[in-house]
Computed example of a mutant assay.
Amino acid sequence: MNRADAPSRHLGILKHSLFWPVTVLIVMLLANVIFTRDFLAIRIEQGHLYGSLIDILLFGAPLILVALGMTMVIATGGVDLSVGATVAISGALACDLIAKGHGLPVAIGAAIGASLLLGLWNGLLVTRLGIQPIIATLILMVAGRGIAQLITGGQIITINNQGYKLIGGGYWLGLPFAIILVAVALVVTVVLTRRTALGLLIESVGGNAQASRLAGIRSSGLIVLAYVFCGLCAGVAGLMISSNTLSADGNNAGLWIELDAILAVVLGGTALTGGRFSLAGTVLGALIIQTLDTTIYTAGIPPRTTLVFSAAVVTIVCLLQSPAFRARFTRKRPERPADPVSTGPKQEVTA
């Protein structure tokens, strides 16, 4: 390779959409080593993997799932503010049915079915009634939280079911089952969107829905499918959160997770205007958010300054992601024109 090509190759790496998220995540992980020397260590106890890195993946699993669904919705040019309410409804419904003596398959099936219906509701409001996505999902965001509290009767439902515990707090093959579940969901999503034409169709709808319709693409069906998938992801995340504590809290479960999911998508490089999306970037964004939460506790940052610290870190990451911001530091200064060199005596021009 020619040495002259090396600078351009390095510049291309810097321009890669995943470079800054990966860099920020690595820096945050290494920063935790300053406060906890064995932060990166992974140990095996009773056949199970333990460690801070495993905890980040485990506690970040619900957010990764919700962010995957949010990515599909944002790729179509929409947004789903109701995922937090769907999380609460899913967990509340499953725990309520288990507490009333119903079997585990019935409880999980009812929770997943309700989540799919909620996603379908959002999709129909956007496509059939023409309501703006932020308004359509805001309706369920408010009403859904009330539905969750109606299911729980305004109380925290506690259960004792080890089978249900497996979803969010159990282990399988040495790994937390929640991590395995997220990995399977991610692989299936990648296969469906990157190994088939589905991802390209979703990007075309998000880029220009009108042009997609004129090209014969059923944009409304794809938009509904995206909201249904988002509801499914939120429903499974609700099962994870409630099973991890074996309880359902209709008021606090999944509270503000929709904002974290949107932030994870943006940190991953997907534009809120729709079109092209990055699943790998979304996962990195969710891990950055979870690592940031872990860093706050590890570093012993006072609770009164937690939100300010989080906002500062997120702002820095967003600025690093901004091409316009980076261009201010990489743009070359224009060279001053050289002084004209006279080659001979000036000639006077006469009319």
Score class of each variant (00 low, 15 high):
N2W: 12
R3W: 08
A4Y: 07
A4I: 08
A6G: 00
R9N: 10
R9G: 03
K15H: 14
S17H: 11
T23W: 07
L25C: 12
I26H: 14
L30T: 08
I34A: 14
R37C: 02
F39I: 06
I44F: 07
H48N: 15
L49S: 11
L49E: 11
G51Q: 11
S52G: 13
L57K: 01
L58M: 11
F59W: 05
G60W: 00
P62K: 09
I74Y: 05
A75C: 12
G78P: 02
G78C: 10
G78V: 05
S90T: 08
A94Y: 05
G101L: 07
L104H: 09
A110K: 05
A110W: 03
S115C: 05
G123Q: 02
L125D: 01
L129I: 04
I131V: 13
I135Y: 06
R145C: 09
R145T: 10
G146Y: 11
Q149S: 06
I156E: 09
K165E: 04
G170C: 09
Y171C: 07
F177A: 15
A178H: 05
A183G: 12
V184I: 15
V187D: 04
V188L: 15
T193G: 04
R195C: 13
L200Q: 12
L201Y: 09
S204T: 04
S204C: 09
V205T: 11
G206W: 02
A209Q: 13
A211Y: 10
S212L: 12
L214Q: 12
I217N: 02
S219P: 02
Y227M: 07
V236H: 02
V236T: 01
M240K: 03
I241R: 04
N244L: 01
T245Q: 08
L246R: 10
L246N: 15
A248K: 01
G250R: 01
N251G: 01
I257N: 00
L259E: 06
G268W: 02
F277E: 03
L279Q: 03
T282W: 10
L284R: 06
L284K: 04
G285H: 11
A286T: 10
I288L: 15
I289M: 10
Q290F: 00
I296D: 01
Y297Q: 12
I301R: 10
T305S: 13
A311W: 14
V314Y: 00
T315P: 01
L320M: 12
S322H: 03
R328Y: 01
F329Q: 04
E335W: 06
R336W: 08
D339N: 10
T343D: 11
T343I: 14
K346G: 14
E348D: 14
V349D: 08
